[in-house]
C-alpha cells in the first residue's frame, strides 16, 4: 500500500514533447512509472518515447484510461493545462512547473476543486511511491521502499530527509513534495490523514518552512487525528523578517509565520521536532524503535 499513486497508476504528461517534459518523462518511465501517453497540442498522432501523443487531455484519457497528469508546460500555460485536466476528468494533477503567476493558480485551483480534481504543486518535485511510481523530478534511487511517509514543502530537503531515513535502515512508503508557493494544491492537512489511513506507513516525516500558517493548521490536525509518530523540521529559524527566502511563500511578515511559532505548535501537538535537518534520520529511528 501507499498513498495517491502506485505501480498501477496510469499517468499522462502535459507538455510531453518539451525539453523538460521529455527528460523527466523518460526518467519516470525508467523508474517504472506507468506513463501511458502525453499531450502536446498539434502533435497528436505522433509517438514520443514509445508512447502516443494526443492533442487534448480528453482524447488522452479516452484512449488510455489515465487518471493522473504530470504537468510540465511553461509557466504562462499552467493554469490552462490544470483547468483542461480538471474538466477532462483527471483525478490528480502533479504540477512541476516553476513560476506560474499566483493569480492564475487561484483560478486554476478553484476550478480543479470544483471538478473534484486533486492537485500537487506547482513548483514542486512531485510524488513518489518508492520502487513503484515516480511522478516528477525526484532522484528515484534514494527512495528505498519502507514504512515512513514523507511530506515536504522543499525538494532538496525531501531528498535529504529520505536519504537519512534510508541510511538508518528504514525506507519510504510515499513521499510528497507539496511546493512552497503561496497557492498550492494538496497540503499537510489533506495528506497527513492519508498516511494515517495507510497500513504500510508507520511514521511520518513532515518538513515545513517559514511563511503562512499551514504548519500551524497541521499541528491542530495532528493533535486531533494522527496517532502515528510524526517527526518534523521547519526550515528558516535563522531567516530574517521581511526577506523572501527563495520560495515565494517563504517570508516572515510581522510576527506571523516564524519557524519558532510553528515548532512550538507542533511540539505541543506531540510531534518530535528536530532543530537541524541533520537529525531527521536519527529521530525516525528513535520513534520507530520505541
Amino acid at each position: 500500500m501507499s498513498i495517491l499513486v502506485n505501480k498501477d497508476t496510469k499517468v499522462i504528461v502535459q507538455g510531453f514533447t518539451g525539453k523538460e517534459g521529455s527528460f523527466h518523462a523518460e526518467q519516470c518511465l525508467a523508474y517504472g512509472t506507468k506513463i501511458v501517453g502525453g499531450v502536446t497540442p498539434t502533435k497528436g498522432g505522433q509517438e514520443h518515447l514509445g508512447k502516443p501523443v494526443f492533442n487534448t487531455v480528453k482524447q488522452a484519457i479516452k484512449a488510455t484510461g489515465a487518471t493522473v497528469s504530470m504537468i510540465f508546460v511553461p509557466p504562462a500555460f499552467v493554469a490552462d493545462a490544470v483547468m483542461e485536466a480538471a474538466e477532462a476528468g483527471i483525478e490528480l494533477a502533479v504540477i512541476i512547473t516553476e513560476g506560474a503567476p499566483v493569480k492564475d493558480m487561484q483560478m486554476a485551483k478553484a476550478h480543479a476543486t470544483k471538478h473534484g480534481m486533486k492537485t500537487i504543486g506547482p513548483n514542486c518535485p512531485g510524488i513518489i511511491t518508492a520502487e513503484e511510481c515516480k511522478i516528477g523530478i525526484m532522484p528515484g534511487m534514494i527512495f528505498k521502499k519502507g514504512n515512513v511517509g514523507l511530506i515536504s514543502k522543499s525538494g532538496t530537503l525531501t531528498y535529504e530527509g529520505a536519504n537519512q531515513v534510508c541510511k538508518e535502515g528504514f525506507g519510504i512508503s510515499t513521499a510528497v513534495g507539496i511546493g512552497g508557493d503561496p497557492i498550492i494544491g494538496l497540503s499537510y492537512n489533506q495528506i497527513l490523514p492519508m498516511f494515517e489511513a495507510d497500513p504500510d506507513t508507520h511514521a511520518i516525516v513532515m518538513i515545513g518552512e517559514i511563511g503562512g500558517d499551514l504548519e500551524i493548521q497541521a499541528a491542530k490536525l495532528i493533535k486531533e487525528q494522527i496517532t502515528k509518530p510524526v517527526v518534523a523540521f521547519i526550515a528558516g529559524q535563522t531567516a530574517p523578517k521581511g526577506k523572501t527566502m527563495g520560495h515565494a511563500g517563504a517570508i516572515v511578515s510581522g510576527s506571523a509565520g516564524t519557524a519558532k511559532e510553528k515548532m512550538d505548535a507542533l511540539e505541543a501537538a506531540g510531534v518530535k521536532v528536530v532543530v537541524s535537518p541533520a537529525d531527521i534520520g536519527k529521530a525516525i529511528a528513535e520513534v520507530l524503535s520505541k
Binding site: S154, T156, I210, A235, G236, G246, H247, P277
Partner: peptide
C-alpha cells in the same frame, strides 16, 4: 541547492 535545504543549512 534548493531554498529549503539552504535555510536548513543555515539553521544547522
Amino acid at each position: 541547492n534548493g531554498a529549503g535545504l539552504a535555510m536548513g543549512t543555515m539553521d544547522t
